[in-house]
């Protein structure tokens, strides 16, 4: 097991009380596996990602729960220890390729510093390694490109650079926070292909965060669906997408155009995501759920309806 989250709670202290951005997340990513973390914007996906590498800034903090990385509990490790993991064993890439590279530093500076942050090598060696990594992600003429500034690259190229940086130390886990959302569809497909290939070659596990189910369908082995700070359902991609059990998952799938049968009405989940500051007690989805009963005001327990599948729902969808 590369990564395991056990009942993770990350809160932000606000003037009106604790904002429970991550409210009891449990999930696991096996070695070499791609786990898609899906959910609407604001459901707590990014905060989950930052919690893993200990980059939640005040007023946020991990309140309880555990992050196990390769079997070791890394929750609340001292900062220098976490720093040894970051960018080395666990890498992270972000959504907006325009914003993930420092605009005023040259590409090679930003890559060489990453090499040298974890390996005590000379500048020359670091430069060579940085250049080789650029070639691997499909950047033509890496030698010339190294001394460019980020603004001289296209969005897709910048994301490749960011991915190359993430791969520099052969991490065991890459957390990708919507890395293709800001790119157009063709570029998105190219980036996905590059990451998939490199991860498969090296046995790297991926935690792929997205709000786009179609990305998950094409890329992930397993999927975890997040709603209001919790994983409401998880399982293999085929099982969850073909036979969703949670009503929220079913709603999400119904609202993806490509997966809908031709001519069928595109379904919209009614209502709005509840504000994290005032979520309904019990199942947070019950204000929007057509199958909700009084029971749903209770906390739905975590169940395993099938092998390798988890669910938090009192009245699962029947097909």
């Amino acid at each position: 097991m590369t990564l395991e989250l056990r009942d993770l709670h990350t809160h932000f202290d606000t003037r009106v009380g604790a904002l429970r951005a991550v409210d009891g997340v449990s999930l696991s990513v096996r070695r070499g596996e791609v786990l898609g973390l899906v959910g609407e914007s604001g459901s707590g996906k990014s905060v989950t990602g930052f919690s893993i590498i200990g980059l939640v800034d005040p007023p946020g903090r991990i309140v309880s729960g555990q992050v196990l990385f390769q079997g070791r509990d890394i929750t609340g490790l001292p900062e220098p220890e976490l720093r040894k993991l970051r960018g080395n064993r666990i890498a992270m890439i972000f959504q907006d390729p325009m914003m993930t590279l420092n605009p005023v530093l040259r590409i090679d500076t930003q890559r060489i510093e990453t090499v040298r942050a974890h390996d005590n090598v000379s500048h020359v060696v670091a430069r060579t390694r940085a250049r080789d990594a650029l070639g691997q992600v499909g950047i033509p003429s890496p030698d010339e490109r190294l001394s460019s500034y980020p603004h001289q690259f296209s969005g897709g190229m910048r994301q490749r650079v960011a991915i190359a940086i993430a791969l520099l130390h052969n991490p065991a886990l890459i957390i990708a926070d919507e890395p293709t959302t800001a790119l157009d569809v063709t570029i998105q497909a190219q980036i996905l292909a590059v990451v998939q290939k490199l991860a498969a070659e090296r046995g790297t596990s991926l935690l792929w965060i997205t709000h786009d189910l179609s990305v998950v369908a094409g890329l992930a082995d397993r999927v975890a669906v997040m709603y209001a700070g919790r994983i409401v359902e998880s399982g293999s991609v085929d099982a969850v997408l073909d036979r969703p059990m949670h009503h929220y998952t079913a709603g999400l799938i119904g609202s993806v155009p490509s997966r809908n049968k031709r001519g069928a009405k595109l379904l919209q989940i009614p209502g709005m995501t509840p504000s994290p500051l005032d979520r309904p007690a019990g199942c947070a989805f019950r204000t929007r759920c057509s199958a909700a009963t009084e029971t749903c005001a209770q906390e739905p327990p975590l169940t395993m309806p099938e092998p390798d599948r988890t669910l938090r729902c009192f009245h699962p969808v029947r097909i």
Binding site: R86, G87, A91
Partner: peptide, 8 residues
């Protein structure tokens, strides 16, 4: 954030 996530 990315710079910090690199372990700098």
């Amino acid at each position: 954030r990315f710079a910090r996530a690199k372990g700098l």
